[in-house]
C-alpha cells in the first residue's frame, strides 16, 4: 500500500469521525428537542380532547369540592390525622388564600398493586398524560403535560409524575420529574425558581396553585427522601399538600439532582377560568 493511500484513508476517517460527532451533537441538542416538543404538543392536544369530551370529572362538578378522604394514598404515612386543608405552617408562609378543605378528589384511594390496571375512575393510567403544568417564571407560554410514571421513554414526551406520590392537590407530596437539558429542556430554568413563584397544575377540573418555598435544593441522585410526603430537608414539618420538582444537576451532568419544593396555596375550579397566578 502506498503511503499516499494510507494518508488519504486516515484523513477520510478523521473527517468522517468529525462529521459523526457534529451530527450527534446536533441530534442531542436540537433534534431531541424538536421531537420532544412535538410529542408534548401531541400529549397536550390529546389531553384537551379528552377533557373537552368530558372524560374527566363528570363526578366532580366544578365548584363542588367534596371532602378529600384522608389516608388517600397507600404510602401516606400514618401520621395522626392530617387535617385536610390545613395550611402548611411554614415560617413565612404567605397563606394568602387558604386552600379549600379537600381539593376535589376524583381519585379513590389508590391500591399500590404493581401491574394492576387501575379501575375506571382511579388514578391515570401509567404513561398517560393527566395534567398540565404551568410555571410563569419559565415564560408565559410554558405549559407541559404531566404523565403518569417516570420511565426514560416517558420523560421524552413530557414531565413525569412519580407514581407512588400524591395526586395533584391531595394531601401528601405531588412529585414530578423533568429533563433539565435535551428533550425540550422543560426544567432548564429550575434553578431560577424562588420562594413565592407559582407552579400551577390543571388536571381538567381544578387549578391547583402551588407556591415555591425556599431556594432550589441540591442533593444526591439516590436521595429519595425528597419526594417523601413530608420531605425532611424541605423545612416542612407537618403533613400538608406539597409539590416536588426534580431534575438533574449540574445542568449538563448527572452527579446530583436539583429539587424544588412548593406548597398548595389555592385551588379553583376550571370553570372559573385561569387562576390569578397565571394572569398576572
Amino acid at each position: 500500500m502506498r503511503p499516499r493511500t494510507v494518508v488519504r484513508t486516515l484523513s477520510e476517517l478523521c473527517v468522517t469521525t468529525g462529521a459523526l460527532l457534529v451530527l450527534f451533537v446536533v441530534y442531542v441538542l436540537y433534534w431531541t428537542g424538536v421531537r420532544a416538543d412535538s410529542a408534548m404538543d401531541e400529549e397536550l392536544g390529546r389531553l384537551q380532547d379528552r377533557w373537552s369530551r368530558g372524560a374527566v370529572g363528570a363526578a366532580a362538578a366544578p365548584g363542588e369540592p367534596e371532602a378529600a378522604p384522608e389516608q388517600q394514598l397507600g404510602d401516606t404515612p400514618p401520621e395522626e390525622g392530617a387535617p385536610p386543608g390545613q395550611p402548611p405552617d411554614k415560617p413565612g408562609d404567605p397563606s394568602a388564600s387558604s386552600p379549600q378543605p379537600g381539593a376535589p378528589s376524583r381519585t379513590p384511594p389508590r391500591t399500590d398493586t404493581p401491574g394492576q390496571a387501575p379501575p375506571a375512575g382511579a388514578g391515570p393510567r401509567a404513561g398517560r398524560a393527566f395534567a398540565v403544568m404551568y410555571v410563569p417564571r419559565f415564560g408565559a407560554g410554558w405549559a407541559k403535560p404531566v404523565l403518569e410514571g417516570t420511565g426514560t421513554e416517558l420523560l421524552k414526551r413530557g414531565l413525569g409524575h412519580y407514581e407512588r406520590t400524591a395526586r395533584p392537590g391531595a394531601p401528601g407530596n405531588f412529585a414530578v420529574a423533568g429533563h433539565r437539558r435535551t428533550y425540550g429542556d422543560p426544567f432548564k430554568d429550575l434553578d431560577e425558581l424562588r420562594a413565592g413563584d407559582a407552579v400551577v397544575i390543571n388536571d381538567g377540573t381544578t387549578w391547583f396553585t402551588y407556591r415555591v418555598d425556599g431556594r432550589p435544593y441540591r442533593t444526591r441522585p439516590d436521595d429519595t427522601g425528597v419526594i417523601d410526603p413530608v420531605p425532611a430537608a424541605s423545612g416542612y414539618r407537618t403533613p400538608g399538600r406539597y409539590l416536588t420538582l426534580t431534575t438533574c444537576e449540574p445542568e449538563w451532568g448527572h452527579s446530583h439532582r436539583l429539587i424544588v419544593w412548593a406548597h398548595l396555596d389555592a385551588t379553583s375550579p376550571v370553570a372559573q377560568g385561569r387562576p390569578g397566578a397565571l394572569s398576572a
Binding site: V28, A126, G149, T150, G151, T152, E153, L154, L155, G160, Y162, A177, G178, H179, R180, R181, T182, Y183, F187, T219, P221, D222, D223, T224, V226, I227, T246, T247, C248, W252, G253, H254, R257, I259
Partner: peptide
Amino acid sequence: LLPFNDVTVDNGMAVNQ
C-alpha cells in the same frame, strides 16, 4: 449513554418501566 436522562431520584424504579 450520556448523562442527560437522569432526572429522577429513584432511578432504580424508573429503569424498570
